[in-house]
């Protein structure tokens, strides 16, 4: 582990000042960051401990939605009564991830910023354009079972590994970000993460010194909420494919179909064309296939992860069938 300075921020302004420096990183739960520091993947000169700057509350918003503080733990969020009753897809997604011990430490903001599990990213003696720009990608011709099939680039085929953000994407949540100038900006979760392109090191839209303060959920909507995570073991495994869905049927037709997908790309995958294709239609296997065709139109496997393409199709079928049955 590279030696580093540690500073405890007392306020958001403190935190912004420290993290605006080059090679300074905020630390909250540290469940991902500390592991990566031990592996020398993350080598900050300075850590700003933001655990005492506030922003840990989960509160009702004026518009009837819910504001989840950036420092609320994943456990606190998953067990919150309004999350459980109004946004169950979020509770389910969080509980499908990691372990109880990790969820007790992990925070909303930290979870959004968690880094990929690509084996080549976490091994500093292997090439990785994300970790070391220009060094190449070990995964493209290597072991790529976990890797992306959508939105990849010749530079990087890593996935965003989390579950929570997939549910937030389906819920169309917003990320509130404090800027170092003392301002605030809001970014939809759907736009928060980036595709790798030619800048795979850039994983989200946060600029230096910017700190997430909250995630806000819109007022609750009616319908069935499902989080479906496919994995080879039933706990503490990252998704091969996951689907977050908020679905409602009226008069035998889909009236709502908000979907997001995990395990397929460098970000939670959201494609409004799928919603358009489903809403107003009567559920059928053919319709589900059409939705899957849209989702997977540009999908490309890298050998070992080819299976994700049919798996995503089948999982989408499973979710839409379940939602249809729930509605019946």
């Amino acid at each position: 582990m590279k030696p580093f300075q540690y500073a405890r921020a007392r306020t958001l302004v403190d935190a912004a000042q420290i993290t605006a420096k080059e090679d300074a990183i905020p630390i909250a739960g540290g469940t991902n960051l500390l592991d990566l520091m031990k592996l020398q993947v993350e080598t900050p000169d300075e850590l700003a401990d933001i655990n005492r700057i506030g922003f840990g509350e989960i509160e009702d918003s004026d518009d009837g939605g819910l504001s989840i503080g950036a420092l609320a733990t994943n456990t606190a969020t998953a067990v919150h009564s309004r999350v459980r009753s109004d946004y169950p897809v979020l509770a389910r997604a969080i509980l499908a991830g990691a372990t109880q011990q990790l969820r007790n430490k992990a925070t909303t903001g930290g979870n959004l910023c968690q880094r990929t599990r690509c084996y080549y990213f976490t091994n500093i003696d292997q090439p990785c354009n994300k970790r070391e720009p220009g060094s190449g990608c070990g995964a493209i011709d290597g072991i790529a079972k976990l890797h992306a099939v959508l939105g990849t680039s010749s530079q990087c085929i890593a996935t965003y590994p989390g579950d929570m953000a997939v549910a937030l994407s389906a819920l169309d949540a917003q990320v509130k970000i404090a800027t170092p100038q003392g301002g605030e900006r809001t970014v939809p979760v759907q736009d928060f993460h980036c595709l790798p392109g030619d800048t795979p090191w850039r994983e989200n839209v946060l600029e230096a010194g910017e700190i997430i303060t909250a995630v806000t959920l819109p007022p609750p909507v009616s319908g069935t909420q499902i989080y479906r995570k496919v994995r080879e073991r039933s706990s503490y495994a990252f998704a091969l494919v996951s689907v977050a869905a908020i679905i409602e049927l009226k008069d035998g037709k889909f009236s709502r179909a908000d979907l997001a997908f995990g395990g397929l790309a460098h970000k939670p995958w959201h494609d409004p064309r799928i919603t358009e294709a489903l809403v107003g239609q009567v559920p059928s296997s053919e319709l589900f296939d059409r939705a899957a065709d849209i989702l997977l139109e540009d999908a490309r496997g890298f050998g070992e992860n080819d299976f994700k393409i049919p798996l995503a199709r089948r999982t989408l079928h499973a979710v839409l069938e379940q939602a249809t049955e729930d509605a019946a």
């Binding site: 084996y119 011709d141 072991i143 706990s235 503490y236 495994a237």
Partner: peptide, 25 residues
Amino acid sequence: LEFDPTDGHLVNCDLAEYHVPVHRD
């Protein structure tokens, strides 16, 4: 265990990526 086809290194070398059964399994 998964080995890289180019240099033979073991890629999944921790308990998060080498999947032994956990309680729920």
